[in-house]
Write a protein that binds this DNA or RNA. Structure first.
Length: 820
RNA sequence: GCCCGGGUGGUGGAAUGGCAGACACAAGGGACUUAAAAUCCCUUGGGGAGAAAUCCCCGUGCGGGUUCGACCCCCGCCCCGGGCACCA
């Protein structure tokens, strides 16, 4: 017994998916091959981590948008590269292995098969001959190869660094895998407590590229908010280092400040509790208090230290520093509002012009000296952090803040008391993990010295293991693979693995030449596909703003310096799709039970309807809720399209509609087709899929209203619909044309003159209120319109008998009569 | 606290400074049907006048401004979402 559906999508969709695969129609031509003479377009999705939960409707939103663009460009005669792959290394598969003993490779394969099935059921036009998997040795061989390039350039180094360690998971976690909770830092996965532990780690010197990562953001067509997040993360600040001699000791304290113009207002100096000079400089009298303070603050979590921002704490160390600019002796304090990890770990405090210093000075009754006058007077009980004019500042008096900064830095440099200094918040990238399921480092150790493997020895694959648990001391699981780690010559393999981000740092380059066994990519393939500023369109979630998108830009710049890629940036245009919320307006989550499973939706409504609905919901970048009623609206629309062509018999057969005709379309329909084509074309190019679909609905409503339906008009409609609902479009095309694939046909064109209506209606306003309308030719000039309006029989009625002083005419838009 | 977004009917959302609410959803009414579903047609921002066609007033978070004309531009607030947050 067959359940009745609005149109036979469950029969149509798998059949066309099979036809497309057999015809190989989405294969992108490599440079030199037939088809590569066409202009290229590289349309990329952020490839997914194949989780056990399967795809969710949020993934599909971005993938549908890129598929529409890809199909559109293909129909416009471009050689389109639209690939898909799997970012498949990662913790969940490894945790699953720890719990069940199943090798992560098997879990990963199963998940990939499921993801591929779900993606293919959507009818996406990926070039599957380019599918890549970051856990495939044929792929990660080149991830290791690129690491060796970084190593050769001295951009990879080993350092002892404090990292987040989770005793329950038995592994370290990246900063991004740690959440701040009211109970302290916890792991994102499993919500277990984590702690700081110093461990020897591999680092990548991303800081060497800080300035270029910042500057080159200007080359990119990315959302401004995302660029801003990267700018903040890089955190450039310009200022000066100033040396303060410590009175009665040979030592000096170097501070970093962005406001050297306020140096005359410094009334004390603060060291962070971790500052190396604290034990040396603390006087005997203060030793006990300072030691206690340091101990207390080291036991505080980062969260506690920042949460208590309002009540500042600190202890004087008993020493005085000499302000180089005026010789004044000012006290030295230790306080945990100064961070050891930024600047020099020491600051000069100017309470009159810095909030934190002001609060501290208030708490401990330290002097507050005003050295900047702002443009407006402000209450004496607050501090002024803006820019203004210097006072009480010796040679800086009457200078503006900008002038004073320059003058002070010049003075400090001449007197050798300081120097101009640029700082970044960006830290080097902690690149090693104590995990099994990741890329092994192509590194061996001889005693304390590390050495690279030769590129011929790649790929270095993972050993087979029974036990994926790391040791309680934080030794990586690979340390247990004794026969693997020990080389015949006595050298020992590195047992850390690379983080999940490694594979995604360059996958877009591998897609250019995915089956190359001699190199990660050929120069010809890279030049061809990455021309014109790199990937033409990259779509994915905003959660990667300062992770993947920063890491990949960093690697790309290193590769650019090595002349392995031809442009300094990988992704020219980037769009973030918004989150799709549950029907209850809450974030989709298993525990809330509001998750929409695409498999269920496809079974009930079909892939085309799901594609159309996801695009019709609203602007791509916006967060929006799922609606099962809206989903029904989408299939209703497609069923209307279907019924333009077919009609259902009493027995449930679909037969050609008797309303179809071979006659040419009437003028009104020709205009409707032209207008819709113009609208859909521009909307697709600007990713406004919701209004493109709305234009298609208007056209379908028009065609439905016709007594006889010209086949040529419906074929035209099918072409416009093809990027959105490709299966249905193919089926209609076949039924009306008898042969060929719409996916390989041309994007429709129109005559510009058909965009213009024969007669237009122009609203007539009187004092900006619409009072009437006139019909006239769209070509009518301002002068002609004015004559028509002034001689209109109803004009004095519209104007209420008042005298018309002036008429404003915007042809094609509006007429506004101004009356006094 | 700072930096980005955003605020339009019952709902999702449309509107190069030019008729606010396209297109959908929901709701109501009608046609078809023994009935229901499906489908098709009509109404639908709020208020008011009229027998009716129609007509009038109000309306895009709040308050000002620019303009012949403002959802759109400018200034000052309020609220929501996201990011950063003792970075000197």
């Amino acid at each position: 017994m067959q359940t009745r559906t609005p149109y036979p999508f469950s029969e149509i969709e798998p059949r066309w998916q099979k036809k497309w695969a057999e015809a190989n129609c989405f294969r992108a031509a490599q440079p030199g091959e037939a088809g590569s003479e066409k202009p290229k377009k590289y349309i990329l999705d952020m490839f997914p981590y194949p989780s056990g939960a399967g795809l969710h409707v949020g993934h599909l939103e971005g993938y549908t948008a890129t598929d529409i663009i890809s199909r559109y460009w293909r129909m416009c005669g471009k050689n389109v590269l639209h690939p898909m792959g799997w970012d498949a290394f990662g913790l969940p598969a490894e945790q699953h292995a720890v719990q069940t003993g199943t090798h992560p490779r098997l879990t990963t394969k199963k998940n990939i098969d499921n993801f591929r099935r779900q993606i293919q059921a959507m009818g996406f036009s990926y070039d599957w001959s380019r599918e890549i998997d970051t856990t495939d040795p044929a792929y990660f061989r080149w991830t290791q190869w690129i690491f060796l390039k970084l190593y050769e350039k001295n951009l990879a180094y080993v350092a002892e660094a404090p990292v987040w360690y989770c005793p329950i998971l038995g592994t370290v976690l990246a900063n991004e895998e740690v959440l701040n909770t009211p109970e302290g830092p916890h792991s994102e996965r499993g919500n277990h407590p984590v702690e700081r532990r110093p461990m020897r780690q591999w680092m990548l010197k991303i800081t060497a590229y800080a300035e270029r990562l910042l500057q080159d953001l200007d080359l990119l067509d990315w959302p401004e908010s995302l660029k801003e997040m990267q700018r903040n993360w890089i955190g450039k600040s310009e200022g000066a280092e100033v040396d303060f001699q410590v009175d009665g000791s040979g030592h000096r304290i170097t501070v970093y400040t962005t406001r050297p113009d306020t140096l005359f207002g410094a009334s004390y100096v603060v060291l962070s509790p971790e500052h190396p000079l604290v034990p040396t400089l603390t006087t005997h009298e203060q030793k006990i208090a300072v030691e206690k303070y340091r101990k207390d603050s080291s036991s505080k979590s980062d969260l506690e230290r920042t949460e208590l921002a309002k009540t500042k704490t600190g202890v004087p160390i008993g020493r005085f520093a000499v302000n180089p600019v005026n010789g004044e002796k000012i006290p030295v304090w230790v306080a945990d509002y100064v961070l050891a990890s930024y600047g020099t770990g020491a600051v000069m405090a100017v309470p009159a012009h810095d909030e934190r210093d002001f609060e501290f000075a208030k708490t401990f009754d330290l002097p507050i000296r005003v050295v900047i006058h702002g443009p407006d007077s402000h209450p004496a009980e607050s501090c002024f952090t803006g820019e203004g004019v210097n006072v009480n500042s010796g040679f800086l008096d009457k200078k503006t803040s900008a002038e004073a900064k320059v003058a002070m830095i010049e003075w400090l440099e001449n007197q050798k008391f300081g120097r101009r200094q640029i700082r970044y918040k960006l830290r080097d990238w902690l690149f090693s993990r104590q995990r099994y399921w990741g890329e092994p480092f192509p590194i061996v150790w001889q005693g304390e010295k590390h050495q690279p493997l030769s590129p011929q020895d790649l790929p270095l694959t993972l050993p087979e293991m029974q036990d994926y648990q790391p040791s309680p001391t934080g030794e990586p699981p690979l340390a247990k693979a004794v026969s693997w780690i020990k080389l015949a010559d006595g050298r020992i393999r590195e047992t850390n693995t690379m983080p999940q981000w490694a594979g995604s740092c360059w996958y877009y380059l591998r897609f250019c030449d995915p089956n190359n066994s001699q190199a990660p990519w050929s120069p010809e393939a890279e030049k061809y596909w990455m021309s014109n500023g790199g990937v033409d369109l990259y779509v994915g979630g905003a959660e990667h703003a300062v992770l993947h998108l920063l890491y990949a830009r960093f690697w790309h710049k290193v590769l650019f310096d090595l002349k392995l890629v031809s442009h300094p940036e990988p992704f020219r245009r980037l769009v973030n799709q918004g989150i799709i919320l549950g029907e209850d307006n809450r974030k989709m989550s298993k525990s809330v039970g509001n998750v929409v499973n695409p498999d269920d939706v496809i079974a009930q409504y079909g892939a085309d309807a799901l594609r159309v609905f996801e695009m019709f919901m609203g602007p791509l970048e916006q967060m929006k809720p799922w609606s099962s009623k809206g989903m029904e609206g989408a299939i209703r629309f497609l069923a209307r399209v279907w019924r333009l062509v077919c009609e259902e018999t009493e027995s449930g057969e679909w037969i050609p509609s008797p309303a179809l005709t071979d006659d040419p379309a009437d003028q009104e329909t020709v205009r409707a087709l032209a207008k819709t084509t113009a609208k859909v074309t521009s909307d697709i190019e600007s990713l406004q899929m919701n209004t493109a679909i709305s234009a298609l609905m208007i056209l379908v409503n028009h065609l439905t209203g016709l007594n006889s339906r010209p086949k040529s008009a419906i074929i035209h409609l099918a072409r416009l619909l093809a990027p959105f609902a490709p299966h249905l479009a193919e089926e209609i095309y076949l039924r009306l044309k008898g042969k060929g694939l719409i996916s390989l046909s041309d994007w429709p064109t129109y005559r510009p003159e058909d965009l213009v209506d024969a007669v237009v209606e122009l609203p007539i306003q009187v004092n900006s209120k619409v009072r009437g309308k006139i019909q006239l030719s769209p070509q009518a000039s301002k002068e002609e319109i004015e004559v028509i309006v002034r001689n209109h029989p109803e004009l004095s009625a519209w104007a209420g008998g008042k005298k018309i002083d002036k008429i404003i005419i915007v042809p094609g838009r509006i007429v506004n009569c101004i009356c006094s």
